[in-house]
Design a protein around this nucleic acid. Structure first.
Lengths: 196, 196
DNA sequence: CTAATTACGGAACTGATAGTTCCAATACTG
DNA sequence: CAGTATTGGAACTATCAGTTCCGTAATTAG
């Protein structure tokens, strides 16, 4: 980020940052990912396009910031069982995923994986955070004696979140059923892990 | 498809159909989904752009045809157990998914879900086929007496394929580990289903 | 054989849109 | 005040999907 010198010149208007994020989110829902144009965001936000490009290098960066930003997932409160903790994590992530229309999620993922650097940032921040949370949950289970050894967190991640992800993004299944699916998955994964 | 009258005029050159598909697949691997241009496909195939648009209405249709086409998945040979059959289905689909670079899969999915009609065709042909195959496998298990009742095929689909999908597309995990993951998932799902 | 019809490569064209550049005005630091 | 970075707005460039037109070639109907 070779930006301008700090503390010199006119400061950026923080309201504009907000307006860009809000306009982007609104238009993503209203028009869909593919039909979101930079001109439309600028117009909706009541600003010039230059103000956007002073903050984000590309359209992809802008959308990334407007959607994935501020997702600081926390480990769930200790439910007393691995199954309960896994279900809580699963529900939280399912709710986040379910909040956006499928076409937005697919568009975002496509843009993220079309760019090496953006992909690395996504993996490091979002995916890494989820795996940290899962690691905490698994540590608790180890401390309780539910587990004999620490499993591969990435595998647990895939087993737990994969089905929900697939349900929401590929099967486009009922959103109401996601809670039930989360419970089913958590039970299945917990059984599988405890068994060995 | 209100095409031209059949049996009149110069027939289409079947070699061109091939050349388009081949050029598209090559360029997807070489340049990635986002950087695939119609001009590049035409040039690589040694044809004019008009010949492409006489066959496909849009870039999305062309890529869809060049990638998803001819995926006539068959039910696996009866392995004697639900677990074995599920593992076979899972391995087959994992191999298909793993054959394309992640950015191509994400780009394709984004385009598919950006268009209502294309999404319906994808669900009907590809997803529907996978669920038909799973239905056969579950029928066998019912006939064997492994299962007491027919489960929701869509849920089984999500539980089985979701983790592999997530592993390959989101976690970008090792491709060698996919076989092991398939076995783990199949076992976990089979246990879960047999249990009730 | 002739007429009608469609396909062919190639090139020119249109329209949409990401990203850039310039402007005059404004807000901040020192 | 001098210097710098901001603002909205508008004009601009470059890329690319999709269209149109050309002269030519291949096929069927009569």
């Amino acid at each position: 980020m070779t930006g301008p010198k700090q503390n010199v010149g006119r400061p950026r208007d923080a309201q504009i940052d907000d307006a860009i994020v809000r306009a982007t989110r609104e238009l993503l829902v209203e028009r869909g990912y593919a039909k979101l144009t930079m001109d439309a965001v600028a117009k909706r936000a009541g600003i010039g396009k230059a103000a956007i490009y002073r903050r984000f290098a590309t359209r992809q960066e802008m959308i990334f910031a407007a959607t994935v930003h501020g997702m600081e997932e926390q480990p769930p409160p200790d439910s007393g069982t691995l199954r309960g903790d896994l279900a809580a994590v699963c529900r939280t992530i399912a709710a986040q995923l379910g909040a956006a229309p499928p076409d937005v999620l697919h568009g975002l993922l496509a843009d993220i994986h079309a760019d090496q650097a953006l992909g690395a940032r996504f993996t490091g921040s979002f995916i890494g955070r989820e795996q940290y949370v899962l690691g905490e949950v698994l540590d608790r289970a180890l401390a309780r004696g539910e587990l004999a050894a620490m499993p591969d967190v990435r595998v647990v991640h895939a087993l737990l979140i994969g089905p929900v992800f697939f349900w929401l993004l590929i099967l486009i299944g009922d959103r109401e059923q996601v809670a039930a699916l989360s419970a089913t998955v958590a039970e299945s994964v917990a059984d599988s892990l405890v068994k060995g």
